[in-house]
């Protein structure tokens, strides 16, 4: 479904990704961990071309997104993305945030989009908040609207970029619960996260990244409990000591 082949990314002279190879199959929930600056977020952002890769290829359903001939706007619709800073559209209500892309991009009938939007908001536990503007919602609620907004495009895979990092601790769980349900429903997911508990519970595979390379990968319980790589051990030691 998603395949990264020898992906390199430079910011100026700084090589942030140093040859990433990764295959994500349908239904997988991949948990990406690693210290800050390890390239996890950059990798995620390359997958829907928010960053251009310097070298290498990324395939979505067999189509190379690094090939300028392919319609990136169409490919992006297959890949939903949720950001650390929510990035809800502040001039639109919760429901409008969820319906704007189906209506404007996919040309779905507005009524139909609104019905589906309400359903999605209910699914993330926000029934009754349809007409609220983002500024009137808590961080956890905003992030759940952002998840519903991405789901409205019926993506085949969802990317989560540290989506709970900006949240107050008591709001983290409500967002993770939504993600858990999504995973249980069979959604293919790639989650950059620091939530080890979540990773162990719903992840089908965990990846440890450092210095722009994938250092180690395994099923989450193994990787977290018995890391083989020295760096993984050091990282997990620091995180778990907190």
């Amino acid at each position: 479904m998603i395949e990264l082949v020898d992906v390199h990314k430079y910011f100026g002279h700084n090589e942030v990704l140093k040859g990433i190879d990764l295959k994500v199959k349908q239904g997988e929930v991949i948990v990406v961990i690693g210290p800050s600056g390890s390239g996890k977020s950059t990798m995620l952002r390359c997958i829907n071309k928010l960053e251009d890769v310097t070298k290498g290829h990324i395939y979505i359903d067999g189509q190379d997104i690094t090939d300028p001939k392919n319609d990136i706007n169409a490919l992006r619709q297959k890949v939903g993305m949720v950001f650390q800073s929510f990035n809800l559209f502040p001039h639109l209500t919760a429901l409008q945030n969820v319906t704007i892309a189906p209506v404007r991009v996919q040309k779905v009938d507005r009524r139909q989009a609104e019905d589906k939007g309400r359903e999605l908001l209910a699914r993330v536990g926000l029934a009754g908040k349809e007409d609220f503007f983002p500024s009137k919602l808590s961080g956890g609620q905003q992030q759940r609207v952002a998840i519903a907004r991405a789901l409205a495009m019926e993506p085949e895979v969802m990317l989560f970029d540290e989506v709970t990092s900006a949240l107050d601790p008591e709001l983290v769980k409500e967002v993770l619960d939504v993600m858990k349900n999504l995973a249980l429903g069979g959604m293919t997911m790639v989650c950059v996260t620091h939530e080890m508990g979540f990773g162990r519970e719903v992840g089908t595979r965990a990846i440890f990244m450092d210095e722009g390379v994938i250092m180690e990968e395994n099923i989450p319980s193994e990787l977290f409990a018995h890391p083989r790589n020295k760096r993984t051990q050091a990282f997990l030691g620091k995180v778990l000591a907190q």
Partner: peptide, 20 residues
């Protein structure tokens, strides 16, 4: 982040400008 969110939803650059 506003432009990125719009682009990630499949908006073209101009549509993102216009609607978002």
């Amino acid at each position: 982040g506003q432009m990125e969110a719009a682009r990630s939803l499949g908006f073209s650059y101009l549509k993102a400008m216009w609607y978002v």
